[in-house]
């Protein structure tokens, strides 16, 4: 069953601050970028003002991601009282390890809960649960 929303119930929006604004702006354009320190060549997530490795505050850059990764872990939301009321159960939240090494969470939009497994290849896609809101999501990918 693909991911479905329940009309009339707003989806909670991401909190956008100066550190993560470029990320969400890119998602609006259906582009997927990750934050990297150009001095240490290390990616990190969530976005932040300072490289936690070398403490540089001016070497941070936004780099296009391959958008590919693997399911690192996942949770199936199957019970009403645990699920968000604006989304049809069951739905799946996946924790994806990107090829760049960082991990992000989102929904998987095109898989049945019992299809999802740790190590499953996925790639970034986008959806728009309501007007003015674009989210990055994950979909199945051939390995």
């Amino acid at each position: 069953m693909p991911l479905e929303y329940i009309p009339g119930i707003p989806i909670l929006r991401p909190y956008v601050d100066p550190d993560n604004q470029p990320f969400w702006d890119a998602v609006d354009r259906h582009e997927f970028v990750l934050q990297r320190c150009s001095d240490c060549d290390v990616y990190f997530q969530p976005p932040r003002p300072m490289c936690p490795h070398c403490l540089s505050m001016d070497s941070l850059e936004w780099v296009p991601s391959s958008g590919r990764g693997e399911v690192y872990s996942f949770v199936v939301f199957a019970a009403d009282r645990m699920a968000y009321p604006g989304m049809k159960i069951p739905y799946v939240v996946v924790l994806v390890e990107m090829e760049e090494g960082v991990r992000l969470t989102a929904n998987i939009v095109d898989a049945e809960p019992d299809e999802v497994y740790i190590g499953m290849p996925v790639e970034v896609t986008y959806n728009s649960p309501m007007e003015g809101l674009t989210l990055y999501q994950f979909k199945k990918r051939a390995s």
Binding site: Y15, V16, D25
Partner: peptide, 8 residues
């Protein structure tokens, strides 16, 4: 992208 702050 709008934020939580300006949507409410």
């Amino acid at each position: 992208m709008t934020t939580q702050a300006d949507s409410e």
